[in-house]
Design a protein around this nucleic acid. Structure first.
Lengths: 339, 339
DNA sequence: CTGAAAGCGCTTACAG
DNA sequence: CTGAAAGCGCTTACAG
């Protein structure tokens, strides 16, 4: 990478002159046109780009903490988009004077980013959507930088999780109130995480309350907007199907409901649906029928993440990982019968 | 802000020692426990935080271009969330080795951020959702840094816009094919922008094609998920209502359709609906009935933004603002009668 | 109109 | 076990 010095040498002028020209102050400082030309030629020849770190250092620019949000780069449709928006808002609300840097990473390969994490380039790191492998890697890192995982568990790193058991209990309560004792389940197929914790918790709580779930009535699907169609088809083909579906993701539930409408299956009279919500509650509120969801509250998650980081950045001695659990939010709507 | 030097002085040790300890290498370098304690006390007393610019400079860390995305901090539900996700993806796809920094700003007050923009702290700046005032301010800035505005027009700054006229033409074509010659319009009420360009364009094109729009059949509403309810109520109360609605935002269209369903107004046989789509096409695809939308393609917009910035960062001489127009995408669905 | 020098805050190779 | 010094790349006040 060419530096100011290189440019100065090539153009046969001093570094000051180059600096002035590169910063667009040539005329203000009445640099001669010939010098400007010489310098700009050198700049282009060398492909010079100023080093922003040096610049910022020189400017003694407010040394704001830098927070990095690592984000699997192919994530578009889930919780993470909301969380990013909410992190942005919470930084503002908490008047946290920091710089938020969004870094895409590839699942299973967050180690490629290890150098910048260890180097303490950041004052805090938030990791969304890590695989098991990514989590293990991050845990192995010898770094002072506080790392917060979103919806993952770890002994060593801080975590903010939605309370998976609460989700299960909320769902089970709804079932009990409506006297539903037999449920079909739609779970998410995920390559990168030992996912399905929420579905597992739900299944366990159902057992506790003697709500029946036939193994054959559990359908797994990729968390994709279109997959609800397949899921609905599979559901319809089931023998001994239950009249109730618990769905791990509203992303799937949307198209599922659409297909049931098409097939004239009446919701909720013939079929009741509860879904976990990750999209933000507005997206399931105005479909017909509106979908009863137990929502993962991205705003609360973002808020807790920011609080943890602010605290740990404030107090370096606070080395213990924080583990915060956030409660889900129930939205009772038309897809599930009123008690 | 305390520096390493301050800590060293207070702890009565050299800067090297402080640096080693602060970086967690105390044991590896066998620093005595008493020294560690002295230093950590000083660190805490002064609230020392390392200057990451100096650090990065010292590490000669890859001097990646920094791209700042300015974003009105209260924006949650519209296009911008998608664009951020897409910018992230496009950076990856284009193998653009840069740092993406997300900065929240308050509409009408982007000037608060002017210093960091002028300083060349960034190699490129993307601005989403600026008000007229913000645009004027940015235009007045004497800076070498390329600035790209999303969906705004400017002579001086680069812009990436969805082709508003194409949207209008697509909508008008649908109307003509379906022999609709009388339309109601739902427009967005926006505090910060001379918005409604799209609605204006649509109205103009309708005139060109002799499609009637009664002034009384134009309803304005804030772009909020719940506002479709009010809009639908107002529509229902209209005298001489048309049997077709053109809606400027799918955010509004969702709840509007929901309310029409409730009131048993049959779509599309009694009432046809076309909406501009900003949410991403999946969100209007699986509501019942699915909504015909003309979508603002956030992926294409993001792609163009990144291309402009890559080009301008590559070639400093390229000072002329780029003006890129991106074509909308039509999704014909159930809310509008098949031709 | 242009240059030499100081210094932003940090880390590391080296010396002791 | 700890310190003095060099240097990362830049900008600016000063000198001429």
């Amino acid at each position: 990478m060419a530096t100011l010095k290189d440019v100065a040498q090539l153009a046969n002028v001093s570094m000051s002159t180059v600096s002035i020209i590169v910063n667009g102050k040539a005329h203000e400082r009445s640099i001669s046109d010939s010098t400007i030309e010489k310098v700009m030629n050198a700049v282009n020849e060398l492909g010079y780009a100023p080093n922003s770190n040096a610049r910022s250092l020189r400017y003694s620019q407010a040394n704001r903490p830098k927070i990095a949000l690592y984000w699997p780069f192919d994530t578009r449709t889930n919780l993470l988009s909301n969380i990013l928006t909410d992190i942005n808002m919470q930084i503002h609300k908490n008047k946290f004077d920091c710089e938020l840097i969004v870094k895409a990473y590839e699942n299973d390969y967050i180690e490629k980013n290890s150098k910048e994490i260890i180097n303490n380039s950041f004052s805090g790191v938030i990791v969304g959507g890590p695989s098991q492998k990514d989590v293990s890697f991050l845990e192995s890192l010898e770094t002072m930088v506080p790392i917060v995982l979103i919806n993952r568990s770890s002994e060593k790193l801080s975590t903010v999780n939605v309370n998976s058991k609460s989700i299960a209990l909320m769902a089970v309560n709804l079932l009990k109130q409506a006297k539903k004792d037999n449920v079909s389940v739609v779970g998410i197929k995920d390559t990168y995480t030992a996912s399905n914790q929420r579905t597992k918790d739900f299944i366990r709580e159902c057992k506790n309350e003697s709500i029946k779930i036939n193994q054959k009535n559990i359908i797994y699907a990729v968390n994709d907007f279109n997959k609800g169609i397949d899921v609905a088809k599979k559901y319809i083909m089931q023998k001994n199907k239950s009249d109730t579906i618990f769905c791990e993701s509203d992303v799937i539930a949307l198209s599922m409901v659409y297909y049931f409408n098409k097939k004239n299956i009446k919701i909720p009279s013939e079929l009741s649906i509860i879904s976990i919500g990750t999209l933000g509650s507005n997206f399931t509120k105005y479909v017909t029928p509106s979908i009863t969801t137990i929502n993962v509250p991205s705003d609360k998650i973002a808020n807790q993440i920011i609080k943890i980081l602010m605290k740990k950045i404030e107090n370096k001695n606070d080395k213990l990982p924080a583990h915060i659990t956030v409660e889900p939010e129930l939205f009772v709507r038309e897809s599930f019968p009123e008690q």
